[in-house]
């Protein structure tokens, strides 16, 4: 064995590094917030698929409003709720590029519900990462379309009263009825096991888009310790005890599974 071969064999193996697609900047996310994990997963998937140079992301209005600084691919900022429409415009202009949106619950399921439903039913070949933390984070903790019955927020100070404020929207279940949807899957990032499952789902979403199967959505049930009023650890417990029962994890629509070749 030559000397150089020996050296190469002894070179330390890199076990963990920043994904190339993730910018080397400090994010504005709070401790214990799920955004950081999810964004990392998205960039890991972009790296693994080797698509940074052809990917265009759309960030919304909400806590991820400045996410264009956190990704190394081309990025567009969109008006509140309009990310699916902006992504539609980009994808129709650049059908060979990969286009994703990264949206919160207020953006996707309240002000942008029309854009969401119609992008989904048109089968726009985009991937939507949907952060459902049951509250408006950026504006300081108001009731969201996904806030749970009885959940106290700044604008539901006595708890969400379904008699006057209506019921939470289950987005995956709703979208799964639409023929244009190729993937609707709900995941969470409360444990290493679930983080791995979330990454697998996100990767599947991007792959389905590249294969041209249709609209793909990965809903991540997420924490917002700051606006929920918990520590990071308490927030995970609250998510497990309250959010997951209302928003069960799982695959709600999978075009390949329907065809029997998933």
């Amino acid at each position: 064995m030559s000397k150089s071969a020996t050296l190469a064999a002894e070179k330390p193996k890199i076990l963990f590094e920043r994904p190339k697609a993730l910018s080397d900047v400090i994010t504005n996310y709070c401790p214990g917030c799920s955004h950081g994990i999810v964004q990392r997963l998205v960039t890991e998937v972009i790296d693994e698929l080797g698509i940074e140079g052809s990917t265009v992301g759309v960030c919304p209005v909400g806590c991820s409003v400045t996410a264009y600084d956190f990704y190394n691919c081309d990025m567009a900022q969109a008006a509140h709720g309009r990310a699916p429409a902006v992504a539609t415009g980009i994808k129709r202009a650049l059908p060979n590029n990969v286009v994703f949106t990264y949206q919160g619950d207020g953006d996707l399921a309240s002000i942008g519900m029309a854009e969401t439903i119609h992008a989904a039913t048109r089968g726009e070949k985009i991937t939507v990462i949907f952060i459902n933390n049951a509250i408006y984070g950026m504006t300081g903790g108001q009731m969201a379309p996904t806030s749970l019955p009885g959940q106290v927020t700044q604008t539901s100070p006595y708890g969400r009263d379904v008699a006057t404020a209506g019921y939470p929207i289950r987005v995956c279940e709703l979208l799964s009825t639409l023929d244009g949807v190729a993937l609707a899957e709900r995941v969470t990032v409360d444990s290493p096991k679930n983080v791995r499952a979330a990454k697998k789902a996100i990767k599947k979403g991007f792959e389905y888009q590249i294969e041209g199967l249709g609209y793909t959505l990965i809903e991540v049930v997420a924490t917002c310790p700051t606006n929920w009023g918990f520590s990071a650890k308490e927030a995970i417990t609250w998510l497990q005890e309250n959010m997951i029962p209302y928003y069960p994890l799982g695959v709600y629509k999978d075009a390949k599974a329907i065809k029997g070749d998933a």
């Binding site: 265009v56 759309v58 567009a76 969109a78 008006a79 309009r82 429409a85 902006v86 992504a87 539609t88 415009g89 980009i90 994808k91 129709r92 202009a93 650049l94 029309a114 854009e115 439903i117 119609h118």
Partner: peptide, 24 residues
């Protein structure tokens, strides 16, 4: 080319925003 009948004027103008951003 692309002709797309959007779900609303709001969506249509934001599709324009996206396509313009993409350079067309």
């Amino acid at each position: 080319g692309t002709y797309l009948q959007a779900e609303s004027e709001v969506a249509a103008i934001n599709m324009v925003y996206g396509a313009s951003a993409a350079g067309v």
